[in-house]
Amino acid sequence: MESHLAYLDAGSGSLIVQALVAGTAGVVVAAKLYWRRVTSVFRRKTPAEATAAPVETATPAAATADKD
């Protein structure tokens, strides 16, 4: 999806900070983002994952955390 990439480099970190600036609801979003990142890293590092099919027993968040 190209259209959402604005002409301006918004700064990947700056986009996350914006969520934190938005108050509690934003902090929840940022926490979720980080949690998904952590669990996705964790998943990639399990030896089982290196050889076998994706593990479906990880936390629910991890199920959709394979985006980056």
Binding site: D9, G11, S12, I16, V29, L33, K67, D68
Partner: peptide, 10 residues
């Protein structure tokens, strides 16, 4: 930023 945007949306 594309990847982060997607993560944020998700």
């Amino acid at each position: 930023t594309g990847a982060v945007r997607e993560q944020l949306r998700d």
